[in-house]
Design a binder for these strands. Structure first.
Lengths: 115, 115
DNA sequence: CCGTATCCATATCGATACTG
DNA sequence: CAGTATCGATATGGATACGG
């Protein structure tokens, strides 16, 4: 990190926006599921262990609004809704990879952070 | 992003840890201030606009616990406490830079995400 | 099947007051 | 100066029930 990274008009606004979208507790898990293949709502709920309907709905709406995920409704009965990751969603992988590298860095043992 | 990025024992645990430390609302702002130079508590509170004492204290404790920031107490009266970014704290810049690149990516206009 | 609506528990945050 | 303690407001999340 270097102070010259302070490139935004306001310090770190783009980083803030990125974290707002990608930093959600479940965001990464959902994107990963959709990365493997497109999935329907119920499948996502089953595979993302522990997520509630309410939160899953909200996450998906956010992701669709942010353009990372596409939502397709098949007009059958019962209706089938399929979620699919977009190119932009795949692009988020760069950011996650950097976070992964940092999180996996070698480090001295120290008391856990509990936030 | 590629499904082969699923390298952790549990999907994305290292990413989760990184986000826990770096994803805080104020974390980046504080690190940036300390990146320019070491600062004392009051100076940080003045410069990080809008942060409360309570939250600043908690953030600093987290950052010290995570090893990103050092805390040095001078035994004067009144006591002076100086916070200084560590090498590990500077290392977080890679991750923030990736988030910045993603957040600054060109994109079609779309309704704002409000999370 | 795919959600939304509602209720409630908990977490988080800001403001204020106070202490070594 | 550098915090901690406490309180109340707000946000967030889970559980459950219900609707198209």
């Amino acid at each position: 990190m270097d102070a010259s990274d302070k490139v935004d008009g306001f310090c770190g606004e783009t980083v803030r926006r990125a974290l707002d979208v990608l930093g959600g507790k479940w965001t990464m898990l959902i994107l990963w599921e959709l990365l493997e293949q497109e999935r329907r709502y119920a499948a996502l709920q089953r595979r993302v262990a522990g997520i509630s309907q309410k939160v899953l709905s909200a996450e998906l709406r956010s992701l669709v609004a942010a353009g990372l995920v596409e939502r397709e409704v098949a007009a059958t009965t019962p209706p089938q809704v399929t979620y699919r990751i977009t190119a932009e969603g795949r692009g988020a992988g760069e950011a996650y990879a950097a976070l992964h590298r940092w999180g996996a860095r070698p480090q001295a043992s120290r008391p856990p952070v509990d936030r």
